[in-house]
Design a protein around this nucleic acid. Structure first.
Length: 440
RNA sequence: CAGGGUGUAGCUCAGUGGGUAGAGUGCCCGCCUUGGAAGCGGGAGGUCGCCGGUUCGAGCCCGGCCACCCUGACCA
């Protein structure tokens, strides 16, 4: 993409509305624009990141055996009356009426809808187990939206729902998602710690919030220092189709203490002793098992092998896709701007032509841009007639992993400069080796 | 939702005792420059959030409304 033809409104000054680093940087780098309190338009650069995150989430859900579908944003109030949540949900639910005065709502979540959809089609234990998911916009009318997309009212969320015949099956479905989450966040360069979370009326240990550590996080969290390491690799060898092996793995992992403020356990903290750590964290995922809450209230049964009718055991599993954009920036930025991990970066390379008015430079840069494209490298090419300093500042701000700098100084010696955004380290190399490096 | 705050140029903000609106930056034109946003000159750009009131006259005073932000209790 040529920057001269892109839409990437960066600002030098920080808009007054933003408080936390990620919000400021998202506005400055032209990722989003706020259109109302807690509601954002995704500009091209931000949309690319959102799509990258979404793709990783989708791949890992598919790998975990979940099946994608897409449910609407607008739901009927009747559906929610079946589960008795229409009145229980409160003002956080955005309610609307259509032209026939029918009561509708903008979905804050989809338990009711998925239960109804699956209920009407699944009649036998042979239809179980299933885990269904979608990635869709939700709306929760937060009293006080803040922190940019990390606590917006409208947000993009992956939510999955599992249906099993019995509790053991539900536990296995839960565990599958558990390791899928570890892998998902690890692929984004994040260390997400599964923390014991509130299970509601069901009780037990089957609810975890996945938290990434960040000083600007909203929750106080406590954990064993074992969690400071990236433990996603431990999940690699696990056979997710083997319930016992998977349970042993998850059980072993969660033996290391990690809890949010509301779920602290003094005994386990004492046991951790000097290995106990405290931090702030951002919740990026939440998984829980809730049994037959919806299958029972919404009359969903399947016939079991012995001929009896049973309510499926359900769980639900959320990932805050749009929130992750903010969370990633919280975890990966410095004074100059964002430093995207390659897996979610909007472009891999920022090609900087230092002298747009110099035919030799422009020609070489055009050629380099063309060849990067041919090699399949996502490149944002700063071909504008701006001073070098402004281009560097823009590149550092938007945080592409690599900057490839081409100017008259190096071109005379046949070299370009390759800079790694995250570390600032730079190196001179020939155009050919730069291409080989970036295409590799 | 309670408490507090702010609405003036694209952005960040000034605006005196009520007298018809400014700076920096960004943008446009020209020149000069060219390796970390900072050279020079010229220029465009504003229903001062909205409605009403007071006044000869309101960005400024009064009333109402709206929007946004902050602090708290709740949430992916």
């Amino acid at each position: 993409m040529r920057l001269s033809r892109y839409f990437m409104p960066v600002t030098r000054e920080t808009p007054a509305d933003a408080q936390v680093a990620s919000h400021k940087l998202m506005l400055r780098a032209g990722l989003v624009r706020q259109t109302a309190a807690g509601i954002y338009a995704w500009l091209p650069l931000g949309l690319r990141v959102l799509k990258k995150i979404e793709a990783i989430v989708r791949e890992e859900q598919d790998k975990a055996g979940a099946v994608e579908l897409l449910m609407p944003t607008i739901q009927s109030a009747d559906l929610w009356r079946q589960s008795k949540r229409y009145d229980a949900y409160g003002p956080e639910m955005l309610r609307l009426k259509d032209r026939h005065d029918r009561e509708m709502l903008y979905g804050p979540t989809n338990e009711e809808m998925i239960t109804a959809l699956f209920r009407d089609a699944a009649k036998s234990y042979r239809d179980l187990p299933r885990t269904l998911y979608h990635i869709q916009w939700k709306f929760r009318d937060e009293v006080r939206p803040r922190f940019g997309v990390m606590r917006g009212r409208e947000f993009l969320m992956k939510d999955a729902y599992s249906f099993d015949l019995d509790e053991d099956g539900a536990r296995h479905s839960y565990n599958r998602m558990f390791i899928a989450y570890l892998r998902t966040f690890a692929r984004m360069g994040l260390t997400a710690i599964p923390m014991q979370a509130d299970t509601g009326p069901i009780g037990g240990d089957l609810s975890h919030e996945f938290i990434i550590l960040a000083s600007s996080g909203e929750s106080d969290v406590f954990y064993h220092k074992a969690w400071e390491a990236d433990r996603s690799a431990e999940a690699e060898g696990v056979d997710a189709d083997d319930p016992a092996a998977l349970q042993a793995f998850v059980g072993g992992l969660t033996a290391d203490y990690a809890a949010t403020d509301e779920k602290r356990d003094p005994a386990r903290e004492a046991a951790a002793g000097a290995d106990l750590r405290q931090s702030r964290g951002i919740e990026v995922g939440h998984i829980f098992y809730f049994g037959t809450k919806y299958s029972a209230s919404m009359g969903f049964t399947v016939q079991a092998g012995d001929g009896t009718q049973v309510h499926p055991e359900m769980g639900s599993y959320g990932i805050g896709v749009s929130r992750l954009v903010g969370a990633l920036i919280e975890a990966r930025h410095d004074e100059a701007g964002i430093a995207w991990p390659e897996s979610v970066a909007p472009f891999q390379v920022g090609l900087v032509n230092m002298r747009a008015d110099d035919p030799a430079c422009a020609g070489a840069a055009d050629d380099l841009y063309r060849r990067l494209g041919q090699a399949g490298v996502e490149t944002l090419y700063d071909d504008r007639d701006e001073r070098g300093g402004a281009k560097f500042a823009t590149m550092d701000l938007i945080g592409l992993p690599w900057q490839l700098i081409l100017g008259p100084k190096g071109l005379g010696r046949g070299v370009v400069e390759l800079k790694r955004r995250a570390t600032g380290e730079r190196e001179e190399l020939s155009i050919e080796s730069a291409l080989a490096r970036l295409a590799g």
